[in-house]
Write a protein that binds this DNA or RNA. Sequence first.
DNA 1: TCATTAAGTATGC
DNA 2: GCATACTTAATGA
Length: 233
Amino acid sequence: MSPMSKDKAMDYNKLLRANIDQRAWETLISAGNFKTYGPGEAIYVQNQPGIGLVCILKGKAKTSILFTDGTEKIFNILEAPAIIGETATFDGGLGICSATALTKVEIVAVPPDKAKEVLLKHPIVALSLLETVGKKLRCMALQAEDLSLHNISTRLARMILNFEQYGVFTRQDEEHCLQITHEELASFVGTTRPNVTSFLNDFARKGLIKIKRGKIIILDYNGLCRHADSELI
DNA sequence: TCATTAAGTATGC
DNA sequence: GCATACTTAATGA
């Protein structure tokens, strides 16, 4: 089945919001192979050869690293349209992280050789990719900074305030609304789920946020900012 | 209505 | 202050 015919209608606004050039997107997905994954299924695995450049057409996925003790550090949560797997595709090395489907996911995987060919022919694709890589590097830098500098309550507040810069690239249906579970938050900031729950309840008691199942709504942006700054070293 | 999964809590290190 | 283990609640098939 041709991915183009199936997903010709990836809407331009969505690409724009995801900072992906439309021509770049279409060029890439016409050069790759269509695949689907169920929730929890691995798209690629850390320290193993990748499947090339992964264009997510539909669904939600995460990139993360797993430690030997079973704990996980999430780097990004991404919703279609999104591109992952750049590093291993272009440096020829093994995967620096794993990518796992969170929902039913449809992707197009562009093999490394093919991806390089496309980039050489179409500078716009290269530019667009550099942009997504740059964005992810910023996320990594922010996460690294927070891991070394702040206690968990502060880190959590900063994560909620900066969730886009922090690596959650999902669509929000309303302003200041973060669609994420406590479990995922815990894996982002490096703690356990109940700990996140208790901090969030604390924020909610102070009127800073409102907690719903699977989402967090920021009520008092400035108040949360004050909390995020109050414990800065 | 039931299975699944998110969120709340009791307890101990 | 935090993690582990257990309980309760919400959701969607």
